[in-house]
Amino acid sequence: MTTHTSTIETVDKKAGGREANLGLWLTLPTQLLVVFIAVFPILMQLYISLTDWSPLDGIQWWRAWELWNTFANYTDLAADSQFWGAVGRTFLIMAICVPVEFLLGLGLAILFVDNFPGRKILYSVLLVPMMVVPAVAGYMFYMLFQSGGPVNDLLSIFVGYPVRIAWLSDPTLALFAIIVADIWQWTPLMFLVLLAGLVGVPEDQQQAATLLGASWTRRFFTIVLPRMKAIIIIALAIRVIENFKIFDTLFIMTNGGPGVATETISVYIYKITQQDLIWGYVAAIALAILIVLSLVSVFAIKLIASKEQAS
């Protein structure tokens, strides 16, 4: 009897050990890829950012120490008005796009929350923009906003005389066109996520509120919105993160121009990477952004976690 139990125990232990091993093996490829794409490049980036290295110098990157300039890139960055201009524009675009997308998405979600004939098909149609390749959307809007294009044509119909606005050549209008394209493409995402949230608000709670005499508006602000808080935060976070990276549509529509009128952080980095080729400086900018984003994300995650604990 004793021997019997001990055999079972050893078998169990062996199986447990094997299981832990299997877990490690299963996660290994992903761990390696993370190291490959995060740890190694960041160290490399740190090294290059402390030098004046450029691929044009004719020396390999590991010999970049020959061009050591310590923190010169970082001090340059602090004084780089074109960079700070790009930062400002990135946040300006975000400050307009994200709230507009949120409000439009929420409004649409409210209209879609209960069933009506044709709901399913209209829902699918509304999701189309989100799935169009962003670069293709960029070309689409590039065509639409040509001076001989359909946007002007439609405006002509409304005002009654031929309109020939050169949208993408005017600094303000170009920014407007870019914002329109972003709203067109990403409102569906807000709609999709917020609708999922709205549908998840328990119906009996809303009925209970109605039976207590609450109007639709009161119900919306006291029951529906508070219940959707987590989902709203998720939706906004996704759009803020993605909008911060804005590049494809914008770059294709305006190239960051006219001048630097629509130059965002991503476009600016792209330009100095591909055109100026000052990679030591690019590495410094990139690393600075990574550090700031990491700090912000850690802070945000802690904030959300502490709030969740409180409630």
Partner: peptide, 11 residues
């Protein structure tokens, strides 16, 4: 979370 632009030099 990170913009691809910010890790492209080493890549």
């Amino acid at each position: 979370l990170f913009p691809p632009m910010a890790v492209m030099i080493p890549v």
